[in-house]
């Protein structure tokens, strides 16, 4: 079986969904003939036609609104926003309607849709192409925020998102679109939403991450192992609704937690996890919950971008501080 990158796994899941369910349609800028600027929809228009793999005019507010209409009218639209940085025009639709239609119609109408957007830094993209604003969506009640971190999870979680009866923001960390290949069978098997994935077991510290930063987190865990510290690594995968039991039971075991995300520090989703650990896990904690995150700055342009992104070294530093607590490492 051929090995797939994450972006090819996304494409494979989209193809599978189109094949299995005639109500599924894809829409977005350049998703058709061009196969998407990242090739996440490559070849799909040829197979499923321009009526189901739809190139839209350049208008994100419009994409948001027609997606709501399609979904409420019985289709299962998967809308691609070319970059997360261009989704903001659609906020009105996403926040005012996508997140609320089921609730305000008491279940009479709903939004079984998926909004996909590549996000995050690290590809030397131009301005506005590198932000990580997942916490904004996670703050909106009614939205499910799902972030894959490997080809396998991209395939399985995207299928689950499309089949889910509610709207899903499916945010794809584009920095790892092509860095890892895995065998991804096109078996149509979805992975569970609303559950964290434990990627590595360890008894000394729990590392909690998602998206592209999972790569540095896993690398740090390997290096730490060489230093005699065994880290448990959790990929949150579904930010909201959050699977707190998995995180809590790990922290009960390790007593320490370091949360790693690329997004800015203040109000990042790590703050939510840290707060819940303080509420529900205080007596298990042997050290303060620490966060390794982006800074509260605009993500720098390409030249200085690497200084903003979370590095393996920063994760290791934080873990050593947690393990040494209350001493300095």
């Amino acid at each position: 079986m051929a090995e797939l990158t994450m972006v090819s796994a996304v494409c494979q899941a989209l193809g599978r969904a189109l094949k299995d369910d005639k109500d599924v349609v894809l829409l977005g800028e350049d998703v058709g003939v061009n196969g998407g600027v990242f090739r996440a929809t490559e070849g799909l228009q040829e197979i499923y036609g321009a009526d189901r793999v739809i190139d839209t005019p350049l208008a994100e507010a419009g994409i948001g609104g027609v997606t709501v209409g399609m979904a409420a009218a019985g289709l299962k639209p998967v809308a691609e926003f070319q970059f997360m940085g261009f989704i903001y025009s659609a906020f009105d639709q996403i926040i005012s309607h996508v997140a609320r239609l089921r609730n305000r119609t008491r279940g009479r109408l709903s939004c079984p849709l998926v909004i996909r957007a590549p996000y995050g830094g690290g590809i030397h993209g131009p301005e506005h192409h590198s932000e990580s604003t997942e916490a904004i969506f996670a703050h909106i009640p009614g939205l499910r925020v799902v972030i894959p971190s490997s080809p396998l999870r991209a395939y399985g979680l995207l299928l689950a998102a499309i089949r889910n009866p509610d709207p899903v923001m499916f945010l794809e960390p584009k920095r790892v679109y092509r860095t890892v290949k895995q065998e991804v069978p096109d078996d149509g098997e979805a992975l569970p939403l609303d559950l964290c994935f434990v990627l590595r077991e360890g008894g000394d510290v729990t590392l909690v991450s998602w998206g592209a930063a999972v790569a540095e987190t896993l690398a740090a865990a390997e290096t730490l192992s060489g230093m005699g510290i065994e880290a448990e690594v959790i990929d949150v995968a579904t930010l909201t609704p959050l699977d707190m039991p998995t995180i809590l039971s790990s922290v009960e075991k390790t007593g320490r937690c370091v949360i790693v995300h690329e997004a800015p520090y203040t109000g990042g989703f790590g703050a939510e996890i840290a707060a819940r650990l303080a509420e529900k896990g205080l007596l298990h904690l042997l050290s303060p919950v620490l966060r390794v995150t982006g800074y509260d700055t605009v993500i720098p342009y390409a030249k200085n971008e690497h200084r903003y992104l979370v590095s393996e070294n920063r994760i290791i530093d934080a873990v050593r501080r947690a393990v040494a607590f209350p001493e300095e490492p």
Partner: peptide, 11 residues
Amino acid sequence: WAISMPRERQS
């Protein structure tokens, strides 16, 4: 053109 979108399909 708007990337791959020709003018006549834009509007």
